[in-house]
């Protein structure tokens, strides 16, 4: 045949290539590919696990955030409630203090009034006693000017003309 083409040699080459293909497939290609697939599966598994953990962490974060928000809201409400209670207590104290002050003032006024009346009564009593005492003395001294003596007695015994 032209170019020394030989069917027997071509068939021998086919056989050779078939042996080589099968041998390389079972000895090298398949084991290496299987190992690569195993490693790929391993890293895919790791990636899936990491993704799961990430999702769990995100979920946990969202839960924590919700709890934090709820706590913030609770704190805000508690603070408002406390402020309201404090304001109410302060108002009550102010009211009580005002009431107390009013009482104190009223009591002081009453006492002052009573003191004044007592002092007035006592002074009137003293004046009456003095007047009675003076009248008694005048009555005991005949010929004296009653009016001047009375004045002397009431002013400490000094002469009326001398003033």
């Amino acid at each position: 045949m032209p170019l020394n083409i030989n069917l027997q040699l071509i068939l021998l080459h086919w056989m050779n290539l078939a042996i080589l293909t099968g041998g390389l497939y079972f000895l090298l290609f398949k084991p290496v590919k299987q190992f690569m697939e195993k490693r790929e599966a391993h890293y895919r598994e790791l990636e899936n696990q990491a993704n799961d953990k990430l999702a769990q962490a995100e979920q946990l974060k969202a839960g924590c955030q919700a709890k934090l928000d709820a706590a913030d809201e609770e704190i805000r409400q508690e603070r408002a409630r406390a402020q309201q209670a404090a304001a109410q207590a302060a108002q009550e104290q102010i009211t009580q203090a005002e009431e107390q002050a009013r009482h104190i003032i009223a009591k002081a006024k009453t006492e002052a009034e009573q003191s004044r009346e007592r002092a007035l009564r006592e002074s009137q009593k003293e004046m009456r006693e003095l007047a009675a005492k003076a009248a008694k003395k005048l009555a005991a001294q005949p010929g004296a000017d009653f009016f001047d003596q009375f004045l002397d007695l009431t002013e400490g015994g000094g002469s009326h003309e001398g003033r």
Binding site: N4, I5, L9, I10, L11, H13, W14, L17
Partner: peptide, 12 residues
């Protein structure tokens, strides 16, 4: 470089 090998490879 043997034509038979090249033909075998091409036809296979």
């Amino acid at each position: 470089s043997d034509v038979n090998a090249a033909i075998a490879m091409g036809t296979l």
